[in-house]
Design a binder for these strands. Structure first.
Lengths: 157, 157
DNA sequence: TATTGTTATACTCTATAACTATA
DNA sequence: TATAGTTATAGAGTATAACAATA
């Protein structure tokens, strides 16, 4: 029990108002909640956010190359290697050499991969609906719009 | 230039619409942008997000104990040790034994720590204003409201 | 027995340089 | 020479178990 203090010291709960003035602070805290919930939703499928993201992109884009996948995921190429390895090892995707460019690999989801992706997608959708369903349409739309603009505002410099 | 491909293969840009259906995916991407900008704003002060957060909380809550700081930051106690160490080493905060409980340490910001915190706060504020200023008041308010509710786990409407 | 701060450890995510085999 | 994928490596951030000192 963390509220067991009594006499000598004030238990005034910590003042973080100075931090709450920052968008980034609030976002980190709420992102932690979202991510924990997402991890929970993906756990039954033995997927992490990164492997789920990669699998979904390969399912949606048959024949995708690793370099394209890395760029789409905003991940450095070396960090994608183990992710792809894991998905191949579990027979969720397959790698084939591209005939016209033997340096490259073309990624395809297997039938098993497409099925797992569909199931995981439903689970994640249900989890997010449970977590965000009570938000209200206009609040949710505002949040999504804000996130879109923030993400797109990155390119200028 | 990533659009240098021509004849043989389609360069159809990757379809991530299946992922964009997820709040968590959008949030991760936009959080990455926010965090990168925050790191840039804090770099001149040699602060990271975690050290800035800890410093600000100690400034706002003189006498705070490490366990309280850890709880406020949503960080496990062992992971706070190096953060506090770094701030103490740089003479931004000080640790004193609590007389009434000699297990605990009481954290205080030094004058130097308060000054650096104030400067860093201004820099972060300016950075966020530059990054988010074009959002529009109602969109921004919607995003903040959404993040607040997500963090609190509230589904009320 | 429980708690504060600490050590040790491990796992995930991320970032960079350098290698290989192709082009 | 440049690119695709890989290896090796290093740094953050995070999580748990176990310990010493103290309550």
């Amino acid at each position: 029990m963390p509220d067991a203090l009594t006499a000598t010291d004030d238990v005034h709960h910590v003042d973080d108002s100075a931090l709450r003035a920052f968008f980034g602070y609030r976002m980190k805290r709420s992102f932690n909640v979202i991510q924990a919930d997402l991890a929970l939703a993906l756990k039954p499928f033995e997927l992490r956010m990164l492997t789920f993201t990669a699998l979904t992109l390969v399912v949606s884009n048959p024949g995708l190359r690793q370099s394209q996948l890395a760029e789409a995921m905003d991940v450095e190429r070396p960090n994608l290697v183990t992710i792809v390895e894991e998905l191949v090892r579990r027979d969720l995707i397959s790698k084939e050499r591209v005939p016209t460019d033997r340096r490259a690999y073309s990624l395809q989801a297997t039938r098993q991969g497409r099925m797992l992706c569909a199931e995981a997608t439903m689970a994640v959708t249900a989890h997010e609906e449970a977590l965000l369903g009570g938000l209200g349409e206009e609040i949710r739309a505002g949040a999504i719009e804000a996130m879109n603009r923030i993400e797109q505002g990155r390119q200028r410099d």
